[in-house]
């Protein structure tokens, strides 16, 4: 197991390197360090000395990817790309354009992001599975049909609609919770209820339908017939046998998203003014702050790879037939 995880970690390195190269090339394809200096210094007539000074201060006074003036391995290491990427791999993200430490910001903002993403994930999973079970229990009846139609309709509604309608109804008309904002500690509850509820509701359509097909597939297995043949009630078959067996694909499918919960939700957070990583990213995008966008891309890719490894491990935990070599 440990050997497997080590191997996967080594395999992740080239992927993260590739991610870095892609974002780096994307950025510097259109932007030279001189442009960056000019944009940040913000003055119309910037002298070349000022630009050089800015570049030297931030380590942008080197070639981008290949330094022909150096010897041997230094040809590759004495470059902007190497300098900036090595820091990334050590989770040293450097500073944003406004001079703040990105790593510190990320640590601070993870909490609020998780405070929304985790309940949405957990409650959403429970609600979706419940709805799917009800539909499967009454399968091929009008209830099932209405449920499926409702699911398709719900997944056809834009996520923005749920947010806007929810804010309008709950906050503006009924004055139940504040429209947006955030507070630390227990006070956060009243700010979190609405975004979490909206997150859950907007996911029901696609989620419940997906689990329904999953359960239906499981219903056609042999063990279900056996269970019925020995005289179990339909409820016992569904809840004791089908649910337990369907939990394997459900759990392993859910594990891959868990690490990504740290990244928060871009849209929800910025609509509700929650100071999480999602709204941080949106602000960075709008401010064209490349250092932050790059750090978030790296973090996202890293968490995705962690999710993949966790998925593999969870397979072995829930299904003894699978062994990691």
């Amino acid at each position: 197991m440990i050997a497997y995880i080590l191997r996967r970690a080594l395999y992740a390195l080239p992927i993260l390197l590739g991610v870095n190269v892609i974002t780096f090339v994307l950025f510097f394809m259109v932007n030279t360090p001189d442009d960056m200096a000019r944009m940040n210094l913000g003055v119309k007539h910037v002298t070349q000395e000022a630009i050089d000074k800015w570049k030297a201060e931030r380590g942008y006074d080197k070639p981008l990817l290949y330094n022909a003036a150096r010897q041997g391995a230094r040809k590759l290491t004495d470059t902007i790309f190497f300098d900036k990427s090595v820091g990334m791999f050590a989770f040293d993200f450097g500073r944003a354009d406004d001079g703040r430490d990105i790593a510190r910001e990320i640590r601070h903002r993870m909490g609020p992001s998780l405070a929304i993403a985790l309940p949405v994930f957990a409650v959403g999973l429970a609600v979706n599975i419940t709805f799917a079970l009800v539909m499967v229990f009454f399968r091929a009846s009008y209830l099932d049909f209405v449920g499926v139609v409702l699911c398709v309709a719900m997944m056809s509604i834009s996520g923005l609609f749920y947010i806007i309608a929810g804010q309008y109804l709950v906050s503006k008309l009924w004055h139940l919770v504040p429209i947006s904002g955030f507070a630390d500690g227990l006070d956060a509850f009243k700010f979190l209820v609405l975004p979490v509820a909206i997150g859950v509701v907007s996911g029901i359509g696609a989620g419940a339908r997906w689990y329904r097909t999953l359960f239906l597939e499981e219903m056609s297995r042999d063990y279900v017939r056996t269970a019925r043949a020995k005289g179990l009630s339909e409820a016992a078959v569904l809840f004791r046998h089908v649910l337990q067996n369907a939990l394997i694909p459900i759990l392993t499918g859910a594990v891959v998203v868990i690490p990504l919960l740290f990244m928060g939700s871009l849209i929800t957070e910025s609509f509700f003014g929650i100071p999480g990583l999602g709204s941080y990213t949106i602000d960075a995008i709008n401010a064209q702050d490349f250092a932050v966008v790059r750090a978030m891309v790296f973090l996202g890719s890293f968490l995705y790879i962690v999710g993949l490894v966790l998925t593999d491990i969870s397979y072995t935990l829930v299904d003894p037939r699978i062994r990691l070599e």
Partner: peptide, 24 residues
């Protein structure tokens, strides 16, 4: 390798980064 790398970048962020660059 190519598609795992692309897949591991959060979609919205890759789009955002690319669109930002194109704006510039």
């Amino acid at each position: 390798y190519l598609y795992t790398t692309l897949n591991s970048i959060p979609g919205v962020l890759l789009i955002a980064a690319a669109v930002l660059m194109m704006q510039v």
